[in-house]
């Protein structure tokens, strides 16, 4: 079942120019004895976008949380900017955290703060910049995501797409070198999905930001990726450029990419027999 495409010559020219800023070597993680991530390795360079895809429960969110230092891998190591995040002291880890931004699936905006204050939050908390300078930085960030002029709206007054864009503006506030996106297009209509995908591409190409995008939205995935990695039951089952993934005849990957119900990916994931389960306990 396992197919591994070689990165080889397919890494984009842009990516070759960048310095490696994210690296995971053979990371594995189990919860309550159940393996959710097994022997995953990946690498992302400055200006490059890696899409980690897979169906729900494939381990992609756990992978993202380990890369961000929110979970610790049981085995293997994660290097951000060449530093092993598991062995860093808290102060040094906080220093690393300032160098990456996170776009949460929900936007994770504070509902009691308006758009301006949400974007200004990391600048107020983590820098000594004065009020006037923060105001300008926030306007520059909102301009980048196309929301300048909406500073004084409250989160409840925003559409789903606007909330995501405010989340991106906030992630950009500290000029991160890496952005981790957790399902950035989930729940959006096709037009807004295209808008967010374009924004991710622009941030990567114009600002040279390295991006890790976790998604099961195939259209967005192919649109933003320089590299793709597919997880299935916690294991890497495919990796390569969008062209390589699109061109594969590996059934498991094809079923996922084409969104088909029929194929090697089973509908049911239970590993025990139904009767045994019903009668056993």
């Amino acid at each position: 079942m396992k197919t591994r495409f070689s990165g080889g010559s397919s890494v984009s020219e842009k990516a070759q120019l960048g310095v490696e800023v994210v690296r995971a070597d053979h990371i594995s993680k189990a919860f309550d004895g159940r393996m959710v991530l097994s022997d995953v390795s990946l690498s992302v360079r400055k200006g490059e976008t890696l899409v980690v895809m897979g169906r729900s429960g494939s381990g992609k969110t756990t992978c993202l949380r380990i890369l961000m230092g929110q979970e610790t891998a049981d085995t293997g190591q994660v290097l951000l900017f060449d530093q092993n995040i598991a062995t860093l002291k808290k102060k040094d880890l906080n220093g690393i955290r300032r160098r990456f931004g996170v776009v949460f699936q929900s936007g994770a905006l504070l509902n009691s703060l308006n758009v301006f204050e949400n974007v200004a939050l990391p600048l107020r908390k983590l820098t000594e910049l004065d009020r006037a300078v923060i105001e300008i930085v926030v306007k520059l960030k909102l301009e980048q995501v196309g929301l300048r002029g909406f500073e004084y709206l409250m989160p409840a007054q925003l559409s789903g797409g606007m909330r995501k864009r405010v989340g991106i503006a906030r992630a950009l506030a500290l000029d991160p070198e890496i952005i981790f996106y957790d399902e950035p297009t989930s729940g959006l209509d096709p037009v807004m999905t295209a808008v967010i995908s374009q924004l991710i591409r622009e941030i990567s190409s114009s600002l040279g930001v390295a991006s890790v995008v976790v998604t099961h939205d195939m259209e967005s995935a192919f649109s933003v990726a320089d590299q793709m990695l597919m997880l299935y039951l916690g294991e890497v089952v495919a990796r390569g450029t969008p062209e390589e993934i699109r061109g594969t005849d590996e059934e498991l990957v094809r079923q996922f990419v084409d969104g088909k119900a029929e194929g090697p990916i089973p509908l049911r994931q239970a590993t025990t027999d139904l009767l045994e389960d019903l009668l056993g306990g």
Binding site: L123, T127, L129, A132, V133, I134, I136, V137, L140, K141, D175
Partner: peptide, 14 residues
């Protein structure tokens, strides 16, 4: 120069 540097120049301009 990051955004805060740009913003600092803009503030001086203002």
């Amino acid at each position: 120069m990051d955004s805060s540097g740009i913003a600092t120049l803009v503030q001086a301009y203002k």
